[in-house]
């Protein structure tokens, strides 16, 4: 297999304020099934509407592992084969549900040349709730020197 497109970025290539290439995910029943398969999270609140509503939720919603995976994908796409994701923090503040279109976005918040570390603000959002999952991360990119 070959990857769609990928060019290795270097520490010197990026600047504070730059936006990361984000991506968009349509959330539907098939995606929900993939979520359970990929995360192996079988807690009913993520696939059983009656169970979720009995617990006080509007409907089933996407789980933490799936949300984390999407945030992680934004970062691993950005750092490429030569970089590394050192830290990530996120808060599950609002929910992504079937019918939503979720966007995953990020921007560079800081750079430390002494360690080639880059701080990133990233998040997941949908049209219904706005930002659902605010996050932050520290990654490294290789230097050109």
């Amino acid at each position: 297999m070959t990857r769609k497109t990928h060019t290795q970025l270097y520490f010197e290539d990026v600047n504070v304020g730059d936006e990361l290439p984000g991506f968009t995910v349509k959330l539907d029943a098939t995606r929900m099934v993939k979520q359970v398969s990929g995360s192996q999270d079988f807690y009913e609140v993520h696939h059983d509407t009656a169970f979720a509503q009995a617990g006080g939720h509007k409907d089933i919603f996407y789980n933490t592992g799936w949300t984390r995976a999407n945030l992680g994908r934004l970062l691993t796409d950005f750092v490429g084969d030569e970089g590394w994701v050192k830290k990530m923090r996120f808060e599950m503040r609002r929910m992504n549900m079937n019918g939503d279109t979720m966007k995953v976005k990020g921007k560079i918040a800081g750079k430390r040349p002494e360690t080639n570390e880059i701080d990133i603000e990233l998040w997941a959002e949908n049209d219904r709730e706005g930002i659902t999952t605010p996050a932050s991360a520290t990654v490294t990119l290789p230097g050109k020197g």
Binding site: M1, T2, K4, W66, R73
Partner: peptide, 10 residues
Amino acid sequence: HCHMIDDDNP
């Protein structure tokens, strides 16, 4: 894992 998020990273 990659399938659930359409991650084609080789």
